[in-house]
Write a protein that binds this DNA or RNA. Sequence first.
RNA 1: GCUGCCAUCGUCUAGCGGCCUAGGACAUCGCCCUCUCAAGGCGGAGAUCACGGGUUCAAAUCCCGUUGGCAGCGCCA
Length: 492
Amino acid sequence: MKEVRVRFAPSPTGDLHIGGVRAALFNWLFAKNKGGKFILRIEDTDEARSTEASAQVILDAMKWLQLNWDEGPGNEFPKYAPYYQMKRKELGIYQKYSDELVERNLAYPCYCTPEEVDEMRKKAQANKLPPKYDGRCRRLAPEQRLQKEKEGKKPVIRFKTLESGATVLNDLIRGRIEFDNSLLDDFVIIKVSGTPTYNFACAIDDYLMEMTHVLRGDDHISNTPRQMQIYNALGWKSPEFAHMAMILGSDGARLSKRHGHTSVLEYRKEGYLQEALINYLALLGWSTQDSQQIFPIEELIWKFSTDRCRSSPSIFDPEKLLWLNGEKIRSKTVEQIYELFIDWLKYTDNEKIIDGWDREFLKKAIVLEHDKIKLLKDIPSLVDFFFVKDIVYNDDAVKKVLLSEKSKDTSKLVLTESAERLKNRQDFSADALEKYARDLAVEKEIKTGQVFHPIRVAISGRTQGPSLFHMMELMGKDEVIRRISAALAKFF
RNA sequence: GCUGCCAUCGUCUAGCGGCCUAGGACAUCGCCCUCUCAAGGCGGAGAUCACGGGUUCAAAUCCCGUUGGCAGCGCCA
């Protein structure tokens, strides 16, 4: 059995998008599942839009996602390197095969200008025909070619597509798809600049890099017959293809800015975990028979298969991603969350937020709020009141719990009593504190809530927060008394 | 316009001819737990399986057509 080799081949014209990650992920899972190799190749033949910076951003994003590549930039195998198409162009790789095709009369130079070609397509479309290049340079006599060359015209190279018959694709996900060859025009394989076009470079590289399978978005389905014809012309066997359905935005249109974040980096900045994004994306277009939702990455690997991929598109649901992120965080130990949080602070350049915070104390605070964390960025606002000297009292909380007509007398009583009585307590454990509070309620003949709530607001400034007594225990006796006294002084 | 792909709760999906009065998950609603907020547990509502025709004793499942959505039709990838 031949070793499975698959690739992710992004073009560095922007950030890594959700759709790109999904394509990368499915290839990565496929490779891991088959014990094969996952290759990263940069398709930077778009001379106008490709940038070095963008390539770097994509590499970084892949690293963050832990979609590690067995071969690619930074991990070059002499047999297949280089992994940037423009570097491969410099080596003359594409030119060589283009020359071969021209020599064998399977491709030809075309001197038509983009404007002329545009004109042909418009005309064809006006006649309700598929917009095609009409092939006029295909049968240029040698002397006519010479004439054009003399005029100083620089040609592109066009591939001679088959004029009749059909090209049949047996897609791993969709089954048999047949393309009528007469509908394909002679497409450009080498631009005037000498750079190969996508369809050519892709086919050549997939062959030279010995790809066994090509998993990609279904927006590439109609490119497939072109690439297959190139393989055939060169006498090569084409790889297996699998076209997965696209991911769409909430309105069913292609995922774009107005649907929220599209770049993975933005999700990272928000405090999503890479494994949540991975798990969520795996669920889009793939499923198990029992509709399992949560997968550790290892399980994703051994369960993944293309024949459980759906062929219908799916809509990206940010709410479910958020839920999944919470699930992943809840499944982590506090130590792990702490590490993730610190990494996130560094990444977002927010380390100053925790300036002066005691690290061990912070971990204990995280324990108390563990299952409330949905995003790493939630953590500061969840626990910051522990660390500030002068806490910020929420207006509504103060009005409702401390100063309302109904509550002000009992609140004042509870706080005054507590400031005094807690001083003498030896046992400041959560259990002991709870007993204290309940006893106080009984003694003063008030409801337990009338004891709990004022203390909560006094020491945290808010009505929401961790378990009251655990919060007190963690704060410690001195600080609790200090805060209660401060609240007393401020509001009563 | 041409070609192709797709079509099950709002969303992600299970379903490969009888187990479906269509199952799970997110979201939503209610109840329970409870010192608040969460988390968790339980339950509800939510899908004429896009529509119309076949085939069959039997169809969400197979076939044909229609409609709708999406994609491609570049010297972009």
